[in-house]
Amino acid sequence: MFETKSGEQIILAVHRHWFVIGSKMTVIIIMLLIAVILTQISSAYIPENYTTLAAFLLSIYILIILLISFILWVDYYLDMWIITNERVISIEQRGLFNREISEFMLSRVQDVTVEIPDFFATVFKFGNIIVQTAGEKQFIAKNIPNAGHAKDIILEYAQKNKTGSNSPNLNE
């Protein structure tokens, strides 16, 4: 679990844009529909004894699909960027047991770039944020909703950290 330091406040916590999970869930729904339609069609041709077996196998198939979509949801849900008034924490869940957490201090931010990679990103208003820090590593947050707003916040608090006035203005 992520914990803040004393005097540190979370300014923004962002998951990837809903389009990312929405496109995967659409495929899942299509797979479910195909199975249901195939079961309906085949029930007209198979013996009566086997119709309950077909329904049972369909229920098992739906359970497996549900588990896959639950894992996809958790993978999406646990990926996040947390921007505090002192640092940015990037949490990336890769499957169930592989998790990468990296962070950088806002005072080390040198350059922030927003990239709108494709048609869907333009339509649904999300993009990638690339942060260059004083170290060698480049931080990339992919498919962030309102990437421009997140970039502005990073730059604002990076500036405040460099000038030493990084307390969050809660009236904003």
């Binding site: 998951h15 958790v74 849900y77 869940q93």
Partner: peptide, 22 residues
């Protein structure tokens, strides 16, 4: 999966409802 969610989800996250639906 539930253990992962309990361990890593931020408190007061409203999307927790979707987990309950699942």
């Amino acid at each position: 999966i539930l253990w992962h969610l309990k361990e890593y989800v931020l408190p007061d996250d409203k999307r927790n409802l979707i987990t309950k639906v699942f």
